[in-house]
Amino acid sequence: MSKKQGTVVITGASTGVGRATALLLAQEGYQVFAGVRTEKDAELLRLNSAGNLTPITLDITKLEQIKAATEIVSSAVGEKGLLGLVNNAGILVDGPLEYLDLDELRWQFEVNVIGQVAVTQAFLPMIRQAKGRIINIGSVSGKISSPFFSALCASKFALEALTDSLRMELYPWGIEVILIEPGSIASAAPDKVEASLQKKLANMSPTARAMYGDIYKFSLEQLIKSNRMGMLPQEVADVIQKALETKKPKTRYFLSKEKVILNLFLMLAKILPDRVCDAIQLQELELKN
């Protein structure tokens, strides 16, 4: 059986990278099960797909939906098993840590960490049957911490650790565990960040707004600007396909239009004092005193 006759499950396929990956792999001949949360998103995927694509309702924070999804996929693949699982679903929680709502912080980890593990555990028996691959979608935020994105960065750092551990644990079965680390991506995310910014500013206490409002707003505006000029979701989808098909894939694929600059910063971060690295980032955000 060639790889392109295999089956792949993708979470968070309603928009962005997940959607682009689902459409690409279906077009390339894979049987794709694309996780979405609404019937509207499911219908849009069906209308735009040129291949064997089946939307499935999959909120990765709901165990009953994960269980139902595994039953659907298991029934379809039988003894062939699952060639690939792409853990793409994720959210962004932002704001100054001093005033970050603890329920929002918990939700960040529920989606970006616990949900990833829950889906992986559920589909691993099928992955093992096919000696398939697990691809986790991380972020440059899993390498570099930034002010006002502490929750996101912490969750992506955690996903990096989980990916590394799982890769070693599954080595005896020849199951590859791969991390894709994109930088800024041009997708619907900037619009979501803009909406989040306005909501957060409106809900900030007068004290919090006086302390952080202007610089927090500037920080989010910089993120929105960066994302609008970022990589296309299709570019990340191409790398995901490569990670599925390459005989000996890399353990990490770091993708960014600013890859050279980011790699230089990461290299310097290993040898420079923390305060020097802090100053570089703070100066970029016009926070330096």
Results as ranks from 00 to 15, higher is better:
Ala118Met: 13
Ala118Gly: 00
Ala118Asn: 09
Val119Met: 02
Thr120Tyr: 06
Thr120Pro: 05
Thr120Gly: 10
Gln121Asp: 03
Ala122Asn: 07
Ala122Tyr: 02
Ala122Arg: 06
Ala122Gly: 03
Phe123Met: 10
Phe123Cys: 08
Leu124Cys: 13
Pro125Ala: 13
Pro125Thr: 11
Met126Cys: 02
Met126Ala: 04
Ile127Asp: 09
Arg128Lys: 15
Arg128Asp: 02
Arg128Ser: 07
Arg128Ala: 13
Gln129Phe: 04
Gln129Ala: 12
Gln129Val: 04
Lys131Asp: 05
Lys131Trp: 01
Lys131Phe: 06
Lys131Glu: 14
Lys131Asn: 12
Lys131Gly: 10
Ile134Cys: 04
Ile135Met: 12
Ile135Asn: 05
Ile135Val: 15
Asn136Gln: 14
Ile137Ala: 01
Ile137Gly: 00
Gly138Gln: 02
Gly138Ile: 02
Ser139Trp: 00
Val140His: 05
Val140Asp: 04
Ser141Ile: 02
Ser141Arg: 08
Gly142Ile: 04
Gly142Glu: 07
Gly142Thr: 07
Gly142Leu: 05
Lys143Phe: 13
Lys143Leu: 14
Ile144Cys: 11
Ile144Gly: 11
Ile144Val: 15
Ser145Pro: 03
Ser146Tyr: 15
Pro147Ala: 13
Pro147Phe: 14
Phe148Ala: 09
Phe148Lys: 00
Phe148Leu: 10
Phe149Val: 09
Phe149Ser: 13
Ser150Lys: 01
Ser150Pro: 00
Ser150Glu: 04
Ser150Val: 10
Ala151Met: 00
Ala151Arg: 00
Leu152Thr: 09
Leu152Pro: 00
Leu152Met: 07
Cys153Leu: 02
Cys153Asp: 06
Ala154Tyr: 06
Ala154Asp: 02
Ser155His: 05
Phe157Met: 06
Phe157His: 14
Ala158Lys: 07
Leu159Gln: 09
Glu160Trp: 01
Glu160Ser: 05
Ala161Val: 02
Ala161Ser: 09
Ala161His: 00
Asp164Val: 09
Ser165Asn: 14
Ser165Leu: 10
Leu166Asp: 08
Leu166Thr: 09
